[in-house]
Simulated assay, not measured.
Amino acid sequence: MPTPFRHALAALLLSTALGTPFTFAADVAGVHFDDHAAVAGSDTVLNGAGLRTRFMLKVYAIGLYGPKRADTVETFAAVPGPKRIQIVTLRELTAEQFADALLDGIRKNTSDAEFTRLQPRADEFRAQLLALKSTPSGSQIRIEWLPASGTRLSVGNEVRGRDIPGEDFFRALLRIWLGEKPVDGELRNALLGKA
């Protein structure tokens, strides 16, 4: 039995024996995602990570963190507690490109009535993104659900704008990548740990 396989098997057996879930870190296009992240003082686990490409160009690496792993958007969204969408850009994007892509993803994955309810908060989130002007390659963007206050946008370690209330807004953001019409089907599977 090859040595790396033996080590992985031993780690899996040990985690099972100790009653702890087997977690993993991920490297995506040179970007490392830790297997755990602290969000609002709570421990979260990496649900999955993947690469967003467009016209064969690498756009960003993305990781999804939550209180526990889930393989459907409904299950992931329903678990109470803080969550994080962590994005690292792999090329420079204008803030307008990034904001418009996110808003387009929300529109594609919500009904007209739901989008009407979300519109004021979506516009506020878009304004927060536009204030960035651009996102150079290597920018670290975090979109976090904080149960006590709402959806928080951070770039690097700097919070941008106020927290946007309503878990329905964060769930709409999740559906950009995990909904019925995700930006990329393979990326959706990677974030749900199915890749």
Rank of each mutant, 00 (worst) to 15 (best):
L93E: 10
P165F: 10
D163H: 05
R162P: 04
A29Y: 07
G30C: 09
L191G: 02
E92Q: 12
L129T: 02
P2S: 14
R160T: 10
P67R: 02
A78C: 07
T94E: 01
L187Y: 03
P136W: 06
T72D: 00
D71S: 05
T3E: 15
S137G: 14
L13T: 15
E167T: 09
R54F: 10
E96V: 03
D104C: 03
Q86V: 12
A11K: 05
P80F: 00
G150K: 07
G138Y: 08
A10C: 11
E180C: 10
D27S: 13
A131I: 00
L174P: 00
N109K: 01
V73A: 05
M1D: 15
K108Y: 00
L178C: 13
P21S: 15
T53I: 09
K194T: 08
A195D: 12
R84I: 00
T151C: 06
T75S: 00
V39N: 05
G81S: 03
F33T: 06
T3I: 15
F22Q: 14
R175H: 09
L14G: 13
L57I: 00
A95F: 04
L187F: 01
G81P: 03
L93W: 01
F22S: 15
R91C: 08
F24A: 12
N109I: 00
K68V: 01
A99W: 03
A25K: 12
D100Q: 09
A38H: 03
Q140S: 10
Q128V: 08
E114H: 07
D35V: 05
F24G: 06
I106W: 01
R152W: 02
A113G: 05
L174M: 04
A131M: 03
A122S: 08
W177L: 01
R91L: 11
A10L: 12
T16K: 14
A95M: 03
L153Q: 09
A10W: 06
S15F: 06
R171W: 07
F33K: 04
G193Q: 06
L129Y: 02
L132F: 03
F170E: 02
A17I: 14
R162S: 12
G41D: 01
V73M: 01
F55A: 13
H32F: 13
E124A: 15
L14I: 07
E180R: 08
P4H: 13
A29D: 12
T44W: 05
L12C: 13
F22G: 10
F33D: 11
H36A: 08
V28Q: 13
L132N: 04
A101R: 02
L130S: 04
K181A: 08
N189E: 15
D104K: 11
A17D: 15
A78E: 09
Q119A: 14
T23P: 10
D100Y: 06
S134E: 14
A10D: 12
T151D: 05
I62L: 09
K58A: 03
G19N: 11
F22I: 07
P2V: 13
